[in-house]
Nucleic acid binder design. Structure first.
Length: 204
DNA sequence: CGCTCGATATTCT
DNA sequence: GAATATCGAGCGA
């Protein structure tokens, strides 16, 4: 399976966020000469912009943490938050904007599910990858992967075209933020149970 | 089920 | 020093 090319990510961030729903996030782990594939279909994303978006890490300009949002598109922006969790984004923006990224908030597990369960032992199957901090744990994603090329199938973390099926995609306000809360830059597959905080969908 | 609250480290003021 | 693109335990209904 091939990867969406760089040009896919060189479009308005919210358009990329919408189109990433249904694609596949793939984590390959090389260990003792063997290769494990952990993968899931993306079911929930959020777009984060530049200076016009007060909720974005990039709104005050480049810093050591957010520099990937200002660099080449199609790269992994991984950051640590709340003292406990990693979150993974893909840098994406049109050529007229200086920064932007898409947060991946939910996955439907497809490959390597038994390994995911070892990396993240939970009783409830839906709690495996239904949240930005959960899926990074299940796929063993940390800041070591910050900046990797997500358009390269050789990368330890990349994005592939998903199964070609038409799915309904719904736009809602972003969650877990305190600023620009009215902007509908969260995109979900409402049919998937692997969406974080499902109650937020019904409220729209 | 749904809500409140505390943990915990990095980042920025 | 304050805030944070979160999670899970604990509680009440």
């Amino acid at each position: 399976m091939s990867c969406p090319p760089i040009s896919f990510y060189r479009r308005p961030t919210e358009v990329v966020a919408r189109d990433l729903v249904g694609k596949k996030l793939v984590r390959t782990i090389r260990e003792n000469g063997r290769i494990f594939r952990l993968a899931g279909t993306i079911v929930e994303t959020e777009a984060y912009g530049y200076s016009d978006d007060p909720a974005s890490h990039a709104c005050m300009g480049p810093t050591a943490r957010n520099r990937v949002m200002f660099g080449d598109v199609g790269r992994a922006y991984v950051y640590f938050t709340y003292g406990n969790h990693f979150c993974v984004n893909v840098s994406a923006r049109s050529s007229t904007i200086e920064a932007g990224a898409v947060l991946i908030r939910g996955l439907e597990p497809v490959e390597g599910i038994e390994i995911m369960k070892k990396l993240r032992p939970v009783d409830d199957a839906f709690s495996l990858t239904s949240g930005p901090g959960k899926l990074t744990q299940a796929l063993n994603i940390s800041s070591a992967l910050n900046g990797v090329d997500m358009t390269n199938p050789e990368s330890e973390l990349h994005i592939e075209f998903g199964i070609s099926k038409s799915i309904r995609i719904m736009a809602t306000p972003r969650i877990g933020i305190t600023r620009a809360v009215d902007r509908k830059w969260r995109f979900v597959d409402p049919a998937s149970p692997y969406v974080s905080r499902r109650i937020q969908i019904k409220a729209i």
